Measured scan of single mutants.
Amino acid sequence: MTEYKLVVVGAGGVGKSALTIQLIQNHFVDEYDPTIEDSYRKQVVIDGETCLLDILDTAGQEEYSAMRDQYMRTGEGFLCVFAINNTKSFEDIHHYREQIKRVKDSEDVPMVLVGNKCDLPSRTVDTKQAQDLARSYGIPFIETSAKTRQGVDDAFYTLVREIRKHKEKMSKDGKKKKKKSKTKCVIM
């Protein structure tokens, strides 16, 4: 069974824990209790493949930012979460993405942009803004509501699919490099 290491990042209060708990335990946590770091595991079937999701729910508070490099190193894919009623959390996505790329030393890291709290009427981040940002990053965008469960499975499952595509691409690139290195030079 394939294991996928997913990391949920975003500013404090955007609903990272609520999304994760909704996926794992099928219930909505409405009281806000700032996370330092929590880890969850769940076995699911995605596109006919049974897999184990190892999900790291991270601290959004700035005082825990020193811990970010460590979990970013171990993560295979990242859910970059903002709240649709919090423009600052949307603007912060850029910083999370840049930090992930720096730590992973790669421009090509599996990510999904997630606009959470889409059940709320007080939207300050337009869907088109988020779609445009995701398009500019070359990553999928999904709106979710941890409260109603809308888009929750889709967000995590899409990230797994992005990781699969990335692994497939990397193995193809690896095979191309191996083929090239088999060419021999004969000096007579």
Rank of each mutant, 00 (worst) to 15 (best):
Asn86Glu: 12
Thr74Gln: 14
Asn86Lys: 04
Asp108Cys: 08
Gly77Ser: 01
Leu120Gly: 14
Pro121Trp: 06
Tyr71Met: 13
Lys104Phe: 11
Leu79Asn: 00
Tyr64Arg: 08
Glu63Asn: 04
Asn86Gly: 12
Met111Gln: 00
Leu79Lys: 00
Gln99Tyr: 14
Tyr71Ala: 15
Ser106His: 06
Thr74Ser: 12
Met72Leu: 07
Gln70His: 14
Leu79Ser: 00
Tyr96Leu: 15
Met67Tyr: 06
Asn116Gly: 07
Arg68His: 07
Leu120Phe: 13
Lys101Pro: 02
His95Arg: 13
Asp108Ser: 06
Val109Pro: 04
Val112His: 00
Ser106Leu: 11
Glu98Thr: 04
Pro110Gly: 01
Pro121Ser: 13
Val103Lys: 12
Asn86Asp: 15
Arg68Cys: 04
Gln70Val: 09
Pro121Ile: 11
Phe78Tyr: 12
Cys118Phe: 07
Cys118Pro: 05
Phe90Glu: 09
Gln99Arg: 06
Arg68Trp: 04
Cys80His: 03
Phe82Val: 10
Val109Gln: 02
Arg73Glu: 12
Arg73Lys: 11
Pro121His: 10
His95Tyr: 11
Val81His: 04
Asn116Ala: 14
Asp69Ala: 06
Asp92Val: 06
Pro121Arg: 08
Arg123Asn: 13
Glu107Trp: 11
Thr87Ala: 10
Leu79Glu: 00
Ser89Tyr: 03
Val103Asp: 09
Lys101Glu: 09
Gln70Thr: 08
His95Ser: 08
Asp105Glu: 12
Arg102Phe: 05
Phe78Ala: 02
Tyr96Cys: 10
Cys118Val: 09
Glu98Phe: 01
Ile100Val: 07
Arg102Ala: 10
Lys104Trp: 09
Thr124Leu: 08
His95Cys: 08
Val109Trp: 05
Asp108Lys: 08
Tyr71Thr: 14
Thr74Leu: 09
Asn116Trp: 00
His94Gly: 05
Tyr96Gln: 04
Met72Tyr: 13
Cys118Ile: 10
Tyr64Asn: 09
Lys117Arg: 14
Gln70Glu: 13
Glu107Lys: 06
Asn86Phe: 01
Ser65Thr: 08
Ile100Gln: 00
Leu79Trp: 02
Lys117His: 15
Leu113Asn: 00
Leu79Asp: 00
Lys88Thr: 11
Val81Asn: 04
Asn116Leu: 15
Cys80Phe: 15
Val114Trp: 01
Thr124Val: 09
Asn86Ile: 02
Lys101Arg: 11
Asn116His: 15
Thr74Pro: 07
Gly77Gln: 00
Ile100Phe: 05
Pro121Ala: 13
Arg123Leu: 08
Arg102Glu: 07
Ala66Leu: 10
Lys117Gly: 13
Lys88Ile: 12
Thr124Gly: 12
Ala83Phe: 02
Ala83Thr: 09
Ser106Asn: 11
Ala83Asn: 15
Ala83Ser: 14
Glu91Trp: 06
Lys101Cys: 10
Ala66His: 11
Ser65Ile: 02
Lys88Gly: 12
Ser122Arg: 07
Asp105Arg: 10
Val112Gln: 00
Asn116Cys: 15
Gly75Gln: 04
Val81Ser: 06
Leu79Thr: 00
Met72Ser: 08
Lys104Tyr: 09
Gly77Ala: 11
Pro110Ile: 02
Pro110His: 03
Pro110Tyr: 01
Ser65Lys: 04
Cys80Gln: 02
Ile84Tyr: 15
Cys80Met: 13
Glu76Arg: 09
Leu120Ile: 07
Lys117Cys: 14
Val103Ser: 09
Thr74Asp: 14
Glu107Asp: 12
Glu63His: 04
Lys117Val: 15
Met67Leu: 10
Val114Gly: 01
Asn86Leu: 01
Arg97Cys: 15
Val81Leu: 15
Asp126Lys: 06
Ile100Cys: 05
Cys80Ile: 14
Lys104Glu: 03
Ser89Leu: 04
Asp126Asn: 09
Val112Ser: 00
Ile100Lys: 00
Arg102Lys: 10
Val81Gly: 03
Ala66Gln: 12
Met67Phe: 06
Glu91His: 05
Asn116Pro: 00
Asp126Tyr: 08
Ile93Ala: 05
Val114Ser: 01
Pro110Asp: 01
Leu79His: 01
Val112Asp: 00
Asp69Lys: 04
Arg73Leu: 07
Glu98His: 02
Lys88Met: 08
Ala66Phe: 09
